[in-house]
Computed example of a mutant assay.
Amino acid sequence: MRILKNVRELLSATRQRMRPSAPAQGLLEFALALPVLLLLVFGVIEFGRIMQAWLALENGARFGIRFAITGDYNPDYCDDAIVALTQPGAVFASVGRTQLENLDRADGRIDCMVPDKINGNPVENWDEYTSALQDWARLPSIRDAALAGATGIAWENDAAISGDYLAYLTFPQSTFSQNYRGNPAAPGYLNVMICSSRDSGFFVEGPPQDPHYYDNVVSNDHLFPMVCVDNRGANKRYIDDAGGPGDRVRIILTYRHTLITPFLSSWWPTLRLNSSREGLVEKFRTSRVTGLTGGIAMAPTRTPTPPTPPTFTPTP
Rank of each mutant, 00 (worst) to 15 (best):
P262T: 12
E282W: 02
I239A: 12
D247F: 05
G246S: 15
G243C: 08
L264S: 10
L273Y: 08
T261I: 07
R248P: 00
E278F: 00
I251T: 09
T258H: 12
L264Y: 12
G279A: 13
V281K: 09
H257A: 14
L259V: 09
R277E: 02
L273M: 13
P269K: 06
G243S: 10
P245S: 15
G244K: 04
Y255A: 11
K283R: 14
L259Y: 01
D240G: 04
A242R: 02
R250K: 13
D247Y: 00
V281Y: 04
Y255L: 11
L253Q: 01
R248K: 07
P269W: 05
L264Q: 14
E282R: 03
L259K: 10
H257R: 10
F263I: 01
I252K: 04
G244L: 11
P269C: 15
T258K: 15
T254W: 01
I239E: 11
S276N: 06
P245A: 15
I252A: 04
W267H: 08
R248W: 13
L271N: 05
S265Y: 11
I251C: 10
P245I: 05
S275I: 00
S276G: 10
R250W: 10
L280P: 04
N274Q: 06
W267K: 04
P269N: 14
L271T: 09
T258Q: 15
P245F: 05
Y255H: 09
E282V: 00
I260N: 12
D241P: 01
G279Q: 06
G246D: 14
N274R: 04
R250D: 10
L253H: 02
D241G: 05
R272D: 07
E278G: 01
Y255C: 12
S276E: 08
S266R: 06
R256C: 08
T261N: 13
T254E: 03
L259N: 15
G246E: 13
W268M: 13
G244C: 03
P245E: 14
G279Y: 03
E282A: 09
D241C: 06
I239S: 10
T270Y: 09
E278A: 07
S275L: 02
N274C: 03
I251R: 03
I260M: 09
R250G: 09
K283Y: 11
S266D: 06
N274V: 05
S276R: 05
I239P: 01
P262N: 07
G243Y: 02
V281W: 04
L280D: 06
L280M: 10
T261S: 13
I260W: 00
S276C: 03
G244Y: 04
T258N: 13
R277M: 02
G243T: 08
D240Q: 12
I260A: 13
H257C: 14
T254P: 02
L271A: 08
W268N: 13
S265G: 10
